[in-house]
Amino acid sequence: MKKMLFSTILLNVIISSTASVYGQSIELLKKLDQKSLHIAAHRGAHQEQPENSIAAIEEAIRQGVSVVEVDVRATKDGVLVLMHDKALNRTTTGEGEVSKHTFTEIQQLRLRNKANGEASEHVVPTLTEALRVAKGKIIVDLDFKEDRKEFIKKTYDLVEKEGMEDEVLFFLYDYKDMPRIYKLNPRVTLFPRARSMKDLNAILQMKITSIIHLDESFTDTKKLNTMRQQGIYFWMNSLGEYDDEAGQEGKDIYRSFLEKYPFVRLIQTDYPNLWQEVLNGF
């Protein structure tokens, strides 16, 4: 009993020590440490519900995945909403750019069940609504798509207002923006993309985050596995080839993904339900 208690205390010390160097939220890191592999639902569980809808977030929660990825844009009057595209056409019954319409105008629209498909009963949700649905149930990966960068602060303000600092990842396409955005709220965990080993080393040298997006160009399995063992969390997408094949032929293709990228801890997918079946089989 004493030995088990000592091990638990030691683990908490290690997590706390790591978090002081990498990663802003100790609580978020603790959640990730509960499992060796996590699934992220791309734009929510959008095979079953309209992408970036409240229903898609709720479905991701129901499926038991760890993370839901949503896209953030701002309306003409500055309301933060969930929307991937710059234009409304593909995913809603509207037309034109999101930033050229007021929130009231966008609320009159309906989300499409599928891309360019039939209208659903669902409306475009606000970021506030999305955060409230997710709170305490799932980590939210915020993919900030808005061109007007001043809305980054407003996004951070909403996260803080909803008390979600320990439940949010903020994705960055350019890791060089990390120091500036980090200052807005050091408790929010930044999640940058690395496009090369040089980028990866530069990110780690900043000592701001331990959660990093990689792509299929990363092949140094030995080095990346060592980094994983040191507490670095690598995120990769199965979007595209792997997801397409899984959608057509079944989930077994994902086993080859895991064999090829054994250093991965978080996987973003269009088929979270299939990935959950794979993980449940281990």
Rank of each mutant, 00 (worst) to 15 (best):
residue 100 K to A: 14
residue 66 S to H: 01
residue 117 G to E: 09
residue 263 F to I: 05
residue 20 S to H: 13
residue 9 I to M: 13
residue 106 I to N: 00
residue 162 E to D: 11
residue 52 N to I: 07
residue 15 I to D: 07
residue 214 L to T: 12
residue 169 L to P: 06
residue 247 G to D: 08
residue 115 A to C: 06
residue 166 D to W: 04
residue 115 A to T: 12
residue 216 E to Y: 12
residue 230 Q to K: 14
residue 27 E to R: 08
residue 3 K to Y: 13
residue 103 F to V: 05
residue 262 P to F: 11
residue 227 M to C: 03
residue 63 Q to K: 12
residue 123 V to E: 04
residue 3 K to E: 14
residue 70 V to I: 15
residue 246 A to T: 06
residue 141 D to T: 04
residue 146 E to M: 12
residue 75 T to G: 04
residue 106 I to R: 01
residue 92 T to E: 09
residue 43 R to Y: 08
residue 202 A to E: 13
residue 135 K to H: 15
residue 179 P to N: 06
residue 68 V to G: 02
residue 67 V to M: 02
residue 172 L to Q: 08
residue 140 V to H: 01
residue 6 F to A: 12
residue 158 L to T: 02
residue 241 E to L: 09
residue 241 E to A: 14
residue 40 A to G: 04
residue 44 G to S: 10
residue 181 I to W: 08
residue 274 L to W: 00
residue 221 T to N: 15
residue 239 L to N: 15
residue 21 V to I: 15
residue 58 E to F: 02
residue 77 D to K: 10
residue 25 S to E: 11
residue 216 E to K: 14
residue 91 T to M: 03
residue 180 R to T: 14
residue 278 V to R: 00
residue 73 R to D: 03
residue 133 V to T: 11
residue 100 K to P: 00
residue 135 K to W: 10
residue 135 K to P: 08
residue 91 T to C: 06
residue 46 H to Y: 08
residue 280 N to V: 00
residue 250 G to V: 05
residue 256 S to I: 08
residue 276 Q to W: 00
residue 55 A to D: 10
residue 203 I to R: 02
residue 107 Q to N: 13
residue 195 R to P: 01
residue 143 D to T: 05
residue 82 L to P: 05
residue 79 V to C: 03
residue 47 Q to M: 09
residue 27 E to G: 00
residue 124 V to W: 02
residue 96 G to Q: 06
residue 265 R to V: 03
